[in-house]
Simulated scan of single mutants.
Amino acid sequence: MAQNPLPYPFPYSRAADLDSRIKIPRPIIDSALVPIIDSWLLPEEVDLRLMRGLSNSENSETNNYHSDAIIAKAPHLKHTEHIAPGPNGTSVILSVFAPKEPTSAALPALYHIHGGGMIAGDRFSGVTELLDILKGIECIVISVEYRLAPETRAPGPAEDCYTGLVWASENAAAIGIDAAKIVIWGVSGGGALAAALCLMARDRKSPAIPIKGQMLLSPMLDDRCDSVSDQQFEYGSPWCGVSNRMAWDYVLGEDRGTDKVSQYQSPSRAEDLANLPSTYIDAAECEVFRDPAVLYATNMWRCGSTCELHIWPGAFHLFDGMDNPRVPLIHAAVAAKQTWIRRIMMR
């Protein structure tokens, strides 16, 4: 039996000094984040068994445990499941977390697309952390279960997310949401799917009621993996360049990096970013996804779309998954997300 790959051998905060493979200058980790980033060292090579064991439910019993655990930490919510007819005879499961005592029959909705590099995770991944960020914001969270690569290559996962979104919009009254106030939330690999989903919705003119906004958080946008930030963090970083290319290979196979890849598979391939919903993009300064995120925002502005962009200095991939008021940088990043969500949902 193959052994799991070994964790990275050096503290991430000192990688540039200790790893002889790192040849080019790069920003340093914020001192307040050093104890956090150095407390968990990951393998450079992607191990599907490891990733799915850590983040993905294996059976319905575990699924129930996850939903129950989420509700246990958010007892003001109730959880329901819905099934939307998916592409090619498949079904797309949606988990809906809604207030037990809503103040309105039609609340804003946040459509959650989980992370995991498009190769791991499930619809419950990250929901507890998301609900923590949404404290004080009354809305309904809809989390979609999409098929994973490599079993389902892109754009299959994005098509699943699109199917779920259209179903939610068309059944807004039944699930208690305002179809005019749906915000798409995608983290890491989920950010790629969120961006692709918004391109699909624009191009297909469906849902009939336009999406209100999209949040792309440390998004995995570019299969070519050739930006400056990709090169700077090829080694010595959580979700480094080695990990990123391996995940994209799972997602796209031999087409990765070629002209065969479409914007629905890798959103950075889109040339026209006009007429997209209001967008929030953020990334960490010390991660491979930094420069593709900046370029995506720049191209949105070039095409006349609107985007709020944050690059968090000295931060690493997913450093702000849950608020920590004792670390000012984390608290600022979470507060920026909360402020944007409130502004977009309430207008």
Rank of each mutant, 00 (worst) to 15 (best):
119 I>T: 05
149 A>Y: 06
40 W>C: 03
165 L>F: 14
114 H>G: 01
91 S>V: 05
99 P>G: 04
162 Y>Q: 00
167 W>N: 00
129 E>S: 14
71 I>K: 03
52 R>T: 01
156 G>I: 02
115 G>T: 01
165 L>K: 05
63 N>K: 12
42 L>E: 14
81 E>L: 11
109 A>E: 01
39 S>Q: 07
86 G>W: 03
149 A>W: 02
139 C>S: 06
162 Y>T: 01
112 H>C: 05
142 I>C: 03
63 N>G: 00
100 K>E: 15
156 G>F: 04
146 Y>F: 14
102 P>E: 11
156 G>M: 02
70 I>N: 01
42 L>T: 12
126 G>L: 04
148 L>W: 00
58 E>M: 12
140 I>T: 15
128 T>Y: 06
52 R>F: 08
107 L>A: 05
150 P>L: 09
118 M>Q: 08
164 G>A: 05
121 G>S: 07
75 P>F: 05
62 T>D: 10
89 G>S: 09
139 C>K: 08
76 H>K: 15
49 R>M: 13
134 L>Y: 04
129 E>N: 15
108 P>G: 14
50 L>T: 13
63 N>Q: 11
125 S>Q: 13
59 N>C: 15
67 S>R: 15
43 P>V: 12
153 R>K: 13
65 Y>Q: 12
163 T>A: 03
79 H>L: 09
83 I>M: 10
135 K>F: 13
167 W>K: 01
104 S>E: 13
80 T>E: 15
43 P>K: 10
163 T>P: 00
63 N>S: 11
138 E>R: 04
136 G>T: 05
69 A>P: 02
148 L>M: 02
60 S>L: 11
124 F>Q: 08
114 H>D: 04
39 S>K: 09
139 C>E: 12
143 S>T: 04
87 P>C: 10
102 P>N: 13
83 I>D: 06
119 I>Q: 02
148 L>F: 00
101 E>Q: 15
166 V>S: 07
145 E>P: 04
44 E>A: 06
58 E>L: 13
111 Y>A: 00
41 L>F: 07
75 P>D: 07
91 S>K: 10
73 K>H: 15
65 Y>D: 09
114 H>A: 00
163 T>E: 08
62 T>W: 11
87 P>M: 04
122 D>W: 04
162 Y>H: 06
144 V>L: 03
132 D>V: 10
66 H>K: 14
137 I>Q: 12
98 A>K: 08
112 H>N: 14
144 V>R: 07
58 E>S: 11
53 G>R: 03
83 I>L: 12
86 G>E: 12
82 H>E: 12
120 A>K: 03
74 A>H: 15
96 V>H: 05
43 P>N: 11
142 I>S: 06
124 F>A: 10
162 Y>V: 03
72 A>L: 13
66 H>N: 12
92 V>W: 08
115 G>A: 07
119 I>L: 05
103 T>N: 14
150 P>R: 01
90 T>S: 14
